[in-house]
Design a binder for these strands. Structure first.
Lengths: 192, 192
DNA sequence: CAGAAATTCTAGCAGCGCTAGCCAATCTTT
DNA sequence: AAAGATTGGCTAGCGCTGCTAGAATTTCTG
């Protein structure tokens, strides 16, 4: 029993090592640099070891994405709780969200851009995903007009933020006017 | 001279053939299926011929994206001009945009998701890109509050639409509530 | 018709995700 | 404590990718 648990503990630790190495490598050099060979070298094991933990590279990215959602949720929470009013909270959360996307592009891509086999808008979604969405929801809920579904409104607000981040990051929207666009988006959501 | 022009004409025709084949293959089986070998077989030439026309696969995708923007611009124009009022026009354009993204996902990805080496928000941007954005702009402009930059407002509206399309298509937003979210987005932009 | 020039093809490189099958270290049993 | 069983990691390699060098063929020129 003790030996068994020690092994399981070591395995879990190595799994965390893989996910952390993948995230750090992706954040440092982009996901293109995260090859299974490179990742294996980074953790000082051979390639097949990765496949004893994860089904494939996509599953590793999914694990990184889940971890990233926890980070995002925390940052959103901090921003939201520090804001004074409901309008300020919505703005703070929006600013924190887009800042996260710009500061950690590779992580953001794993979370919200890359095609990934994760249940999102369902009860089976991993806890960190629901937590991140929940932070948005708590910021949006107070400014929802009666009759509006807060969940749907949050999804729509999220889509706006996501669009801003991705279009800007791919060079389709100029970076310098980001603050103005964000203000416009927030303004149109708080005005309603 | 005549021989020269004939050759150039044939070359241009083959280039169109490549772009069309790439688009059709992508729309039929997804971009993963568009390998240089497969594409070469499709146009009945050998692989290196592709590289005499385009710098690489990404350049082919960029060409497909430009073509796609022309398509989108046309559909947006149709939707906009058929609408009765300014609010209806904004809604019609938004609906047409998201419908385009859902109906032609591979094309949409090449245009707005895939990292692509195209000048977007500059005067040097290809004409079809500016045309597509121009359609959005013409729909947004009439509902802009005074003091708001219509260009920035259009970019923000675009971001909202883009976010809805991409998050839904990647399974992060449930498909069934799309109409409701779109209505919310439009509503918050027309309410101003 | 022969030489020159342009164009297309064959063949191959390096690297990718992923896996079969061997080998060694570890645990169990006598 | 030695022998057998089992777990686990490694080496090597498959089929594929985007891309390219250089041979070969076709086309035009003198």
């Amino acid at each position: 029993m003790s030996i068994q648990t020690r092994r399981e503990r070591e395995r879990a630790e190595r799994e965390r090592l893989i996910v952390t190495a993948a995230r750090e490598l992706a954040e440092a050099e982009g996901w293109d640099a995260v090859t299974t060979r490179r990742l294996a070298a980074e953790i000082e094991y051979s390639q097949p070891v990765l496949y004893s933990h994860f089904k494939g590279k996509d599953a590793i990215m999914a694990a990184v994405a889940v971890q990233g959602c926890a980070d995002l949720a925390e940052e959103l929470r901090t921003a939201r709780t520090a804001a004074k009013g409901v309008r300020e909270a919505l703005a703070a959360v929006g600013t924190a969200y887009t800042a996260f996307g710009r500061r950690r592009p590779a992580l953001y891509d794993a979370m919200f851009t890359h095609a990934v086999d994760l249940p999102f808008a369902t009860p089976e979604a991993p806890e960190p995903l629901k937590a991140a969405f929940g932070e948005l929801l708590q910021a949006v809920e107070p400014i929802a007009n009666e009759g509006d579904d807060p969940g749907l409104l949050t999804e729509t607000y999220w889509a706006g933020l996501h669009g801003l981040v991705t279009l800007m990051r791919s060079g389709r929207l100029p970076e310098n006017a980001h603050e103005d666009r964000l203000a416009l988006l927030i303004g149109h959501f708080t005005a309603g």
